[in-house]
Design a protein around this nucleic acid. Sequence first.
RNA 1: GCGGGAUUAGCUCAGUUGGAUAGAGCGUCGGCCUCCGGAGCCGAAGGCCACAGGUUCGAAUCCUGUAUCCCGCGCCA
Length: 572
Amino acid sequence: MSTPVYDRYRAAFVGAIAQALGQQPEEIDPHVKPADPQHGDLSFPTFPLAKALKKAPPAIAADLATKVSVPGLQIASAGPYLNARFLLQPFVGEVIDQARSEGEKYGHSEAGKGKTVVIDYSSPNIAKPIAFHHVRSTMIGNAIANLYRSQGWRVEGINYLGDWGKQFGLVAVGFQEYGDPARRGEVAHLVDVYVKANARAESDPEFDERARAFFRRMEEGDQEALALWEEFRETSLRDFKRVYERLGVRFEHYEGESRYQGKMDAIIDEIAKKPGTKESEGALIVDMPYDENEPPVLLKKNDGTTLYATRDLAAAHDRYERFHFDRALYVVATDQSLHFKQLFRTLKEMGRPWADRLIHVNFGRVGGQSTRKGKLTLLTQVLDEAQAVALEKVKENIAAGRIQTDDAEKLADAIGLGAIVFGDLKNRRVTDYDFDLEAFLSFEGHTGPYLQYAHARACNVLRRGGGAPASYDPSLLTLPEELALVREIARLPVVTREATEQNEPSLLARYLLDVASAFSRWYTLGNQERDKRVLVEGNEPVKHARLALTDAVRITLASGLTLLGVPTPENM
RNA sequence: GCGGGAUUAGCUCAGUUGGAUAGAGCGUCGGCCUCCGGAGCCGAAGGCCACAGGUUCGAAUCCUGUAUCCCGCGCCA
C-alpha cells in the first residue's frame, strides 16, 4: 500500500510552508485544514503568525503565496488564508489509479503492523433477555475490529459471554417454578423464565435466597448445578451463533466469565495486600482513597461469591498474559462508565503498567424498548421485517427486468441487514437513540440501502460498459462533478485511519454518504444531458475515462461498506 | 445530594478537535423518467447553535455559572 495521494500533497504543502517560514513541519501541520471547496482543498490560516511576524494576516498570506510552490498544487492567498487546490493533472489520475490498483484493500494501511489490539464486544449475558445494546456492541465492535485489521493490527476479538453469576441461579430456581421441561432447549423459554424469576425475586426474599444459593453451589463446583448451567449456556450460545452468522460477525474467541471460575484467588490475594482492601458489611471491598463520594469496588459478596468486577480484573490480567496487547477495547454501553473507570484504576493501583492501554469504547443507550416487562423487539424480528420490505422492491425490480438474481430472499436479506447495520453506525457512538422500527425500515434518503444502491449502479454501468478499461486518459475528466467525486475518493485512506484512531465507525459511515452523494449527482447528470453519461455514445476515450472513475467509486464504496459490515450486492 | 453525558432547522442528527456565509436526511412545498436503474437527482422554505457571562484576532466548539433531560452511584451484569 502506497502513501495516500491526499497525504502526499498535504505533506508537501506543509513542508513548503514550513520552509518559507523557517519553521519545522510539525509546527505547521496542525494548522493546515481542509478548505472550503470554493477556495480549494487545503487551507492554512495565517492568524497565529500575525503577532510573531508583526504583520497583518492578509499580508502574510499574500507573501506566502509568492514563496510557497508545490508541483501539482495551485496555491493562492485569499484574505488571511493561504489555500491550495489539487491541480487536475496529475491528481485525478493518481487517485483513480491508486484506488484501482489497491482494489478491495483501498483504504487499508500498515500503520498498525506488529501491534495487537484486544476487542471485547457483543458479550451478551446468557439466560437473560438479549437487550438491544448487545446488538449495538456487536455492530460497533465488528466495525472497529474490521477497521483495526485494515490498518494492519493483529486483532483478537473476544465475545466475552456473561455466563457466570447470580442470573443462573434465577433461571435454575425459576425453572422449577415456571419452566416447561419440554421447552428447556428454547432460548425464548429461558428468557421468559428469567423475566418471571427476576420479578419474583424482587418481592420474595426467600426465592431470591434460593437463587443465590444455587449460584453459590456453582462457585463451589457442585456437579449437578454445573451440569444445568452447561445446558443453559449451550442453548443460548447456539441461538446467538445463528444471529452472528446472519450478521456476518465473527470472533477470534468465544469465552466467558466462567473461564475465571476458581482462578480469582490469586488476584484477590494480591489486591488484599493493598491498603484500602477490607471487609465491610460482610463483603470484601477495595476502598482506596480515590475520589470522594465514589463507591468502593466489590470483590466478594457477604456470602463469599464473586462479582463481575472481580472477574473483569482476572480477565484483564489473563488477556495481557495471553496477548501482550498494545490496546484493549471494551465495547460496552456508557451505563458502565463507572465500572470501567474503577476497573482500570484498580489495575493501575495494582502496578499493571498496561492499565493505560485499556479503553472503554462506550456507546449510548437504545431507548424505546421496555426491557423490564420483557417486551423486547428481537433483532431477528427486525431483520425479518427489513428483509420483507426489501423483498417487495427486489421482486418489483426483477419483474421490471432491472436485475437478475437466483436468490431474491438472500438479496433482500443483505439489503435489510445493510439498513440496520448502517442505521446503527451512522451516528456517533455516544449518541443515545430510541429504537424506531419505521426509521430502520425506511430505505430512502441517507440509509444503508442508499449506499448499496449507489454501489450496485456503479457495478451495473461497468457491466454495461464492458468492464473497467485497462487504460484511459484522466485528462478527459473535466466536469466539476467528476472532480468533486475524485476528491471524495481520495479521502478514504484518511478517513479509515481517523475512524480507527478514534474507535468511531460513524466517521467512515458519514464519509461513504458523501461519496455516494457525489456519485449520484454526477451519474444523474446523464438523465438530462446525454453527453454527460458514463456510457457516452460516439466518444470512446471519454467513456473509458468515466468507466475508470466509476470503477474507483465502486472500489471505494465496496471497501468502506465491507469495513462497516454492510453487504455490497452487485445489483439490487 | 454526588459523578458522568447531552442540549444545533418542525423531527433525527453532522459539524474536520478554535477558523471563511453553521450543514445533511426525514417531513413540507415545487421541479426532473420515449433518458446508462427514480431505493435516484435538482430547487425552495426552515437557525438567538438552551440561557448568561468570560478567554481569544476569531467560539456551535474552550472556561465559569444557570436551566432542562438522560445515565450511574455496595453485595446484578
